[in-house]
Computed example of a mutant assay.
Amino acid sequence: MDTLPLFPLGSVLLPGGDLPLHVFEARYRKLVQDLLNEELPDRRFGVVAIRQGWEVGEDNVDSMYDVGCTAIMDNVRQLAGDRYDVTARGERRFRLLQIDNESAPYLLAHVQWLPDATPEPDNPARRERLTAAAWDAHERYHSSGLRGSTRRTPDPGTDPADLSYGLADDCVLSVEDRQDLLAETDPMVRLRNLRRLLLREAQFLRELRAVPAPLAEFAQQPSPN
């Protein structure tokens, strides 16, 4: 069991994904300062999404999804009033075990690392079919008029274990859908689920000229950072 400083957000960070943050709340300004001063190792912190119906920043473990992703802080720009613009990059998944809101001004979390499950015996033909189908769904999604996050589209040679994250980060998906992808530990299932999500979104756009959002999203509170 390891300990991470924790940054709850109203969105889901995926491994390899880009994370821009505007930090102005006092305790998270302190977190950035401790990361910069190397009081916390490797400029690493944990990001977890807040469940619908809870306010961002709730300290209760029940307010957070139990699977998150570490972020490595990259660029930091200090602004007036000790505010910061921060960019970070998603790294590896963890399972949230316990929240410590007493040892530091910001939240600390006891976590367990969550690697992908041991794959079944390699089946190159199956892997190639799933990879090609996921790329095809991604192309249909964008050809339907939906533009994603403007983040980098993954290289065609990306390993299937990471491809689903890269393709998902280039698309607009709900918090729930992104969380499901983050929590899935079978790479092939994750890739198949992403294909299903992208085909669904593309069909919504073709038929309705809009992508429906879950009703719960209208109750989501904005991030304080």
Rank of each mutant, 00 (worst) to 15 (best):
A49K: 05
L199N: 12
A213W: 11
P187I: 01
R196N: 10
R83F: 03
L79T: 02
V189F: 09
V47E: 07
G90A: 01
E217T: 03
L198P: 03
L205T: 02
Q52G: 15
E184M: 13
L198C: 07
E217N: 06
P187G: 06
D100G: 10
L36Y: 05
L215M: 09
D66G: 06
M73I: 03
D100W: 12
R192M: 05
H22P: 00
F204N: 15
P154E: 03
Q112Y: 03
E217D: 15
S144Q: 10
E207N: 13
G17E: 14
L6F: 08
F7M: 08
V12C: 12
A202M: 10
S164P: 04
L197P: 03
A161T: 04
E128F: 07
R95V: 01
L40W: 14
D74L: 06
P20E: 14
C69A: 09
R206D: 08
H110S: 06
D59F: 07
Y28E: 04
R92P: 00
L208H: 05
A88Q: 01
S164N: 11
P5R: 10
D2A: 14
A168C: 01
L96S: 08
P15F: 14
G16C: 04
L97V: 03
V12N: 14
A183P: 06
A168Q: 01
Y65P: 04
L35D: 00
L96V: 09
H110K: 13
L167Q: 04
L40V: 11
D116Y: 11
A132S: 14
L130W: 14
L167S: 02
F45H: 03
L31Q: 06
G68Y: 03
A88L: 03
D159V: 00
R44E: 09
L163E: 00
L40G: 05
D82A: 12
L79F: 03
P5E: 09
V56E: 07
R196E: 15
E58G: 08
L194V: 07
R151Y: 05
H138T: 05
R178N: 09
E139F: 12
V56T: 13
V47T: 03
R209Y: 05
P222D: 11
Q179L: 10
V61I: 15
Q112V: 04
F94W: 02
T70Y: 06
T150Y: 15
G90W: 01
I99N: 06
E91C: 01
A71I: 02
L173M: 13
R77G: 00
Q78L: 07
D170C: 05
G148D: 02
E201S: 12
D180Y: 09
R190Y: 02
P121G: 11
R93V: 00
A161S: 15
V172W: 09
T87S: 15
M73R: 05
S174P: 06
T131V: 15
L197H: 02
L21E: 00
E55A: 15
A133D: 14
P15V: 02
R127G: 04
P115K: 12
I99G: 08
L163D: 02
G17K: 01
P154I: 04
P119M: 13
L173K: 05
D162M: 09
R196W: 11
Q203D: 13
